[in-house]
Write a protein that binds this DNA or RNA. Structure first.
Lengths: 236, 236
DNA sequence: GATAAAATATGATTTAAATCAATGTTTTGT
DNA sequence: ACAAAACATTGATTTAAATCATATTTTATC
């Protein structure tokens, strides 16, 4: 983690538009900015760790982050993906609990670190923000429950297809509109879909044979999105 | 559903102490009570249905409720259990979304039905309540994520053991301190653990052979809780 | 209290996916 | 540029749990 002069601007001048903090007033953004730290995490670096005490709110300015939890004999399960504008750690801050998962940078990622006190202050004074947080949690809970059912009931092929859809949903495509804009290892895709590396490789190969995707190293090109959705057996 | 004169009291006189609404001031409880409906649901009756528009908050006065979602080819997955004092449907109300799951009475259950408007009003005026809701959601999300990892990584025996622990945690024991205070069918236990009825039956039989539980019809007696925890492979 | 319906139980078989094993291919750091 | 490490691939084998099939017991209903 590099804690140096980055070119991350103050919250009032942040270019991100999609995050939950983006709707705050200038005054509130100013409050948040006050004393915030800006840090750059390299690919693979851990931002915070499951079980550790929570003192900060993390707001992604640029980059990609995975949130994972450890399961049986250390097997990792990716529970959420986050991108620019998304905030991390707020659950633990508001509930006074240790971090629920481990956040790891998936590529060079710029993050603003806001103290618990500042965040709580802003939250207390803004019912709208609380409501947005509730809605965010609600959304996360919904997708966690969906994910749960998927893992419990779907086949690996369906789950891998859905994992790819989640990646597209979270990070979109490159300029060519077909290459998924994130490079995961096969093992990470496995951690997302809740299966093993070998099975993931075989299943991706199968999806490739079915002409649904095209594999170019770590890049995955989606050549038939409609069929991918069908294969994932998703209806909503 | 019987919508008749029940003996459910006004919120100000509600005897429950564990729920999120119990900490409200008398004035707020009075507001909630205003215009609330009291209903009795018989065992098996549906309180609200997944996908339907959400107009009400449900507060359990007495009884037991399961929340489930439908998965592939109609297989049910129980995502949460609720008891006296617990509220249902608040997520959908606050996010303006359809109900995320289906709530079904597991036994004769008395429920207070509060309108969206009344609930929102009380919520808006009370930061403490918002915070409590956030913490509740946070807790639910945490357990959903844990459940997800369990289903993805644990064996059926571990999951069934954990399901029993969840039942104990949610509903406790009968007076004898060993009989789990809820009667589920084997198929419902399967829906909770994410497996099939046959496998559940076999696994329960095995736990019985291991002298961890004792089966008496639908009643399940826990004779060795420590070993049950061990078998569930849970560490928190 | 008879009869249907639902729930429980048990055995046999199949199957999807994990595991084990070995090898080839990229990345990464020095 | 090179070695070491990390990652990807493919094949063979095992296994946990689902599925299928059928019988028995319990529970509800007329």
């Amino acid at each position: 983690m590099k804690n140096s002069n980055t070119d991350i601007p103050s919250c009032t001048k942040c270019g991100n538009t999609s995050g939950i903090l983006c709707n705050l007033s200038m005054k509130e953004k100013d409050e948040l900015s006050c004393g915030k730290q800006e840090n750059v995490f390299k690919k693979g670096e851990v931002i915070f760790k499951e079980g550790h005490n929570a003192y900060n709110l993390f707001c992604i300015h640029k980059g990609k982050v995975k949130l994972s939890k450890l399961g049986k004999d250390g097997k990792e399960q990716i529970v959420r993906l986050a991108k620019a504008g998304d905030i991390l750690g707020y659950r633990s801050l508001l509930s006074n609990e240790p971090y629920h998962g481990t956040a790891t940078a998936m590529e060079e990622t710029e993050i603003c670190i806001i103290t618990k006190e500042v965040f709580q202050k802003v939250n207390e004074d803004n019912y709208k923000l609380s409501l947005n947080l509730i809605q965010l949690l609600s959304k996360d809970l919904k997708s966690a429950e969906q994910h749960l059912i998927d893992v419990a009931q779907k086949t690996v092929k369906e789950r891998i297809s859905e994992a790819l859809m989640l990646l597209i949903d979270s990070f979109g495509y490159l300029e060519d509109k077909r290459t998924i804009n994130v490079a995961l290892t096969r093992s990470e895709i496995a951690d997302l879909a809740g299966t093993t590396t070998e099975t993931t490789i075989r299943t991706l190969a199968q999806l490739s044979t079915d002409n649904i995707i095209k594999l170019e190293g770590k890049n995955i090109l989606v050549t038939n999105y409609k069929e991918l959705v069908k294969t994932s057996n998703t209806y909503d």
